[in-house]
């Protein structure tokens, strides 16, 4: 807001102008006060939200000292806990990282491929049963699935995904066993369908007139134009797969196959481990998520809103 540029003489001579100027100063002061209060609350909440992470980072960097007390700065700095967690004998940390990376790559590939494919006919093709399928999926989304963990465990065993033949085949099957239950994402289907519906019909028609097959239309028109949505969805799925721990921990017979977040629980459960090493592990588990989140923040919020609206 630019300052009032009334000449001093006018201010002095005109009581109305004087009053107006006074009111304005008052209003500005009130606004400044209100903003200061807002910032105070904002900072307080930010502290509550971020301090737990900061505390974990600081404690993981300390070699010794009073481990659980509240702290602002580390008493001493050392990477000992990080070395310890990587050289871990109870839980192979490098292997956990590899597992998480493989699970995320597989998971993101599966979910995005399946959803981008399945959403296409639902959005842009005409065939018998389309509405039936669409509404069945919609109903499935609201049906309670509390028995999912139990039945999916039984299914995984019956499908032979936990069978043991050779180490390499076992590993491949167990990665699949972790990834498959979440591979058909209903939220993703709706997000993609919504994105496809927004693509101009003329483009599709022109392609069809030119004799393009549906797969070509999907690959050359739909996918490029839906890229922002696909990116948003891929980020959501990356985070979901990176963070999920329960399913893997319940179902996998082999601890060497666990993803990082599940392995961390395993690590904290063993009495011999130094808690600071677990904290180092927690910091390492969070870092990739933070990077992905900060880079794709815009997509992230968009995907989330779309997911709820869809």
């Amino acid at each position: 807001m630019p300052d009032t540029t009334l000449p001093q003489t006018a201010l002095v001579s005109d009581p109305h102008a004087q009053l107006a100027a006074q009111l304005k100063v008052q209003r500005q002061r009130r606004e400044r006060l209100r903003n200061a209060a807002a910032y105070a609350v904002l900072i307080l909440i930010a502290l509550i939200m971020l301090y737990p992470f900061y505390w974990t980072l600081v404690t993981s960097l300390e070699p010794t000292g009073n481990i659980y007390e509240a702290k602002i700065l580390p008493t001493a700095l050392s990477l000992r806990n990080y070395l310890e967690v990587f050289s871990g004998t109870t839980v192979p940390f490098w292997r956990l990282i590899l597992n998480s990376v493989i699970i995320c790559v597989l998971g993101v590939t599966f979910t995005t491929t399946l959803a981008t494919l399945a959403a296409y006919p639902l959005a842009r093709m005409r065939f018998p049963g389309r509405d039936l399928i669409f509404y069945s999926i919609l109903i499935l989304m609201v049906l309670p699935n509390e028995a999912g963990l139990i039945v999916n465990y039984i299914t995984t065993i019956k499908l032979g995904l936990l069978a043991q033949t050779s180490p390499l085949a076992d590993a491949a099957r167990q990665y699949l066993a972790v990834v498959l239950p979440g591979a058909a994402s209903i939220v993703g289907l709706f997000l993609l369908r919504q994105a496809y519906l927004g693509i101009p019909q003329e483009l599709i028609e022109a392609a069809r007139i030119d004799g393009a097959r549906e797969l070509t239309i999907w690959r050359r028109i739909m996918l490029p134009l839906a890229t922002p949505t696909i990116a948003a969805f891929a980020i959501l799925e990356f985070v979901a797969y990176w963070n999920s721990f329960l399913w893997a921990r319940v179902m996998l017979p082999d601890k060497n196959m666990l993803p990082l977040s599940a392995g961390l629980l395993e690590l904290s459960g063993t009495f011999s481990t130094n808690s600071r090493a677990v904290m180092a592990g927690a910091v390492i588990t969070i870092i990739p998520i933070l990077i992905v989140f900060l880079m794709g923040q815009k997509y992230f919020m968009k995907g989330l809103e779309g997911a709820v609206k869809g």
Partner: peptide, 12 residues
């Protein structure tokens, strides 16, 4: 900042 806890795993 307020969204950071949302994207971290309950395991962590």
């Amino acid at each position: 900042a307020y969204y950071v806890p949302v994207v971290t795993s309950f395991a962590v």
